[in-house]
């Protein structure tokens, strides 16, 4: 019973094995990829392990507080591919091993040539509530 974030991003991970940009795939390959992701989420719903999954638009901006009575300062957008966070999925599983297993399955989503992308996903455990029994 632990929640994990599966984060798909391109910050510092090594290149995927099947590293062809999506706009060089065939439309059918893109459909197969999307279908794989949907099927994966649907299957996790039936096992009672799915919490949430969202994709993010590539364009974002920086925002910060600029003092009392002033509007927030914004900067950007910066849409550099190497910094892109593509999306996430949150799962609730019984063990770390299960979380690793599922991340591995998600990374097998098909890409160019219908072959698995083998892309790197970041797996991060959620911080929990403190246990009742401590000593």
């Amino acid at each position: 019973m632990a929640k994990y974030l599966l984060l798909k991003h391109y910050r510092g991970a090594p290149a995927a094995v099947n590293d062809v940009p999506m706009d060089r795939w065939t439309p059918e390959e893109i459909s197969a990829h999307v279908q794989y992701m949907n099927d994966f989420a649907a299957r996790l719903e039936t096992t009672g392990e799915f919490i949430d999954g969202q994709a993010l638009a590539p364009d974002g901006m920086w925002v910060r507080y600029d003092g009392e009575g002033r509007p927030p300062v914004t900067d950007g957008p910066f849409a550099e591919t190497k910094d892109l966070i593509a999306g996430w999925m949150v799962i609730d599983v019984d063990s770390h091993e299960r979380a690793v297993e599922l991340a591995g399955e998600l990374s097998a989503a098909p890409g160019a040539g219908g072959k698995p992308i083998h892309e790197w996903l970041e797996l991060r455990p959620f911080l929990t509530a403190p246990p009742t029994v401590t000593e």
Partner: peptide, 15 residues
């Protein structure tokens, strides 16, 4: 109580 969607918990229980 466990901060999961109701549909997920329903599946967990029926499974």
């Amino acid at each position: 109580a466990y901060l999961v969607p109701e549909a997920t918990m329903a599946q967990r229980i029926s499974r």
